[in-house]
Each structure stands twice: as structure tokens, then as C-alpha cells.
Amino acid sequence: MFRITARVPRKALAIGTPTAWGATVLAYQLTCPLAQREGVCARVVSGALLLAVGAGLLLHTRRTLLRELRQARTVAGAAQSVLLRPPPARVDGVRIAAAQLSADRGARVGGDLYEVVATEHGLRVLIGDVRGHGIGALGTVAAVLGSFREAAHDEPELGGVLRRLDRALARHLGERGAHDDSAEDFVTALLLEITPDGEITALNCGHPWPFLLCDGGVEPLARADPLPPVGPFPLPGDLTPERCGVFLPGDVLVLHTDGVEDARDPAGRFFPLRATLAALADRLPAAPETTLRLLFSALLRHTRGRPADDVALVVLRNDRARVTCGPLAAQASDQGGAAPGTRPAAG
């Protein structure tokens, strides 16, 4: 009841104020003797009155629109904070920091998404990018994230998780209807699985590969060609995940959306993501929050604070204990292999 009564005065004020001003002008024209005269003085007074009323109406309309825009942004920001909730600071021995930045100035809503979930199958990570940005992308973000949060626990294989995401997106777009142009949306998505011993497998659907920071160097996690984005094309029958090596203690994974690499400065130069990460790799082991803050600061300096696309970053640092000794290490050495918790020698 309180909400209903609180809205009535505001709506009445929004309608009643312009009506009162219009009635004032009409009453002046009909009843004031000065308005009936043909002299210059009468015309100046009438014109000044009309100008004042017109300016008042414009200011009133502007305030009303700004108030509604602020309310819409507040509601959209609250909705996204529920959908794109911050990941836990530490999951299964892996420290995490993540954030997104919308391309809409003054808005907190974007089309990028991410999630990190600890499951019995390992640590599973999703990062994706919905076509478009702003409030219109929230529905697709909700459909994909909701499906992933369930499938990550239910599906023993990473391919099963991806198929669940594909079905959820198809249902969501089908419900929006073919008459809606945004029903042709698609999502680029990267699924990672990190096992307790650090083995990384991935399924990549049109998304940029993450970068691995280790031993002072920076390398793409993989170089294989990705699958098509989720949505416009059927998934292939074989969804064997790509083996991407080992995530060792002290290593850092930086996942990003294409808004990072595609960001340009006023001269049209792309953001040097790999060079920026190489500079940050010399500072390891830095906290993921520090790495995230430095990356966003460098990106905003490059774009003069005006990125053209939504941006999302997820930083993972392996804080698990390193295992380098004991019977397993000796056995691996005798067999010419690498001990658990150590990186296999190159070549």
C-alpha cells in the first residue's frame, strides 16, 4: 500500500505541473487586458511569458527524464550485481579477482560474464561475451550464468557443461521470439577445468585464449583454433576438451574478453595486452587484486577512460602447496617424468 501511495503524488506532479503552466498561459491570453492589446509592449510581455513557460516545461521534462534514467540504471545495476556476483576470494587453493567495465558511460551494466565454481570434478571457470552490451544483454547473461552454475556441478565432462549452455541459450532466444532482432544474439564462451593436481583443460567457443604468467614470462594458454560462438551454429558431435598444460603453484592465469585486446587509443592503436602482462609478470607473486587493478588502470589510460566495448577480466593465482619431494617425485624422476607440482621440462 505504501508503494502505491508513494507513486501517486510523483505521477500527479509530473502531469499536474505542465498542466498548471499551460492553464496559466491560457488564462492570461483569455482574461488579461494586456494580452488583448496590439502594442509592442503587450507583445513583449506575452512573448516573455510564453518563453518562461516553455523554458520551465523543458527543464521539468529534463529533470523527469534524468530521474527515470537514474532509476533504470540503479535497477539494472542491482540486477547485474545479483547475476554477476563477485567470485569468492579463494576457491580450492586458488586466489581469484574479477571485475567488469561497461562501455555505456555512467552505466554499470555490460554484456560480459564470468563465474568460478569449485566442484567435485575440479575448479570450473566460465568467461563469456554476449553480443551487444547494456541493459538488453542482461537476459542472455542471466540464462548463460544460471545454466553454468547448475551444469558445472551436474556434468562430469566439460563437453556436457557446454551442451547445457547451448540448450539454455537456445531456449532463451526462442522465448524472445523471432520478431526481436536481439533474438539473434550469440555468446563467445571459454570453459576451463583445473584439476586438483593443476591439469588444465578447456573448451573455447570463439573467445580469446587466456594468458599464463609463469617464471617471469607470458604465453597464451593454448593456440588451437576455437569453436564457433554458442548460439548461431550447432555444436559439433565431438567436444573433447583441449589439454592446456599444468597450472603450477605461483602461476597466474589472466582471462579476458575481446574488449581488452580490441581497446584503442585516440590514434587507433590497440591496447598492448601481452606487453602489459609481461611487465606485470616481473612483479609476481602479486595479489590477483593488484594485477587486476594495474590492468584496468593501464587500459583506461590507453583509452583515455572511454573503452568502446565492455571489458571483463578474471585473474587466478595458484596458491596451492608445491609438491617436489617424496616417493612420487622419486618415482617420476626414475620414469623420466615430472613430479606432481612441477612443470615438465621443455623439449
Score class of each variant (00 low, 15 high):
L138F: 05
I127K: 01
D181M: 04
V144C: 00
R108C: 05
L145G: 01
D225W: 02
L126A: 11
P156D: 08
V161S: 09
A178F: 01
L190V: 12
R223T: 15
A137K: 11
D180R: 13
L113F: 09
F148S: 11
V230S: 03
L169F: 11
C244Y: 03
G174H: 11
L212A: 09
S147H: 05
P196T: 10
H172G: 03
P156T: 13
A202E: 06
A183C: 08
V218E: 01
F233A: 13
D154G: 05
L192I: 07
L190M: 11
G250L: 10
R167E: 15
D251S: 15
E120S: 13
P236W: 10
A107W: 12
G136T: 15
L113Q: 04
C214N: 01
G146K: 07
L248K: 04
V144E: 01
Y114A: 14
D185Y: 00
A224F: 04
F148L: 13
Y114K: 08
A143I: 13
R164M: 10
G111D: 10
R171K: 05
V116M: 08
N204K: 06
A202C: 12
L145C: 04
H153V: 12
N204R: 09
P249T: 14
D251H: 15
G198V: 11
C244I: 03
L248N: 12
R167W: 08
W209M: 06
L123E: 03
R149L: 13
T201S: 15
G132Y: 05
V230N: 03
L192V: 05
G216A: 07
L212S: 04
H172F: 08
I127F: 00
P232H: 07
E219D: 10
A170K: 12
L145F: 01
F148W: 06
D166H: 15
E219Y: 01
P229M: 10
L213F: 02
C214K: 06
T195V: 09
P232D: 06
V141K: 02
P232C: 07
A118E: 12
H121S: 13
S147N: 04
F233S: 12
A224W: 05
L138W: 06
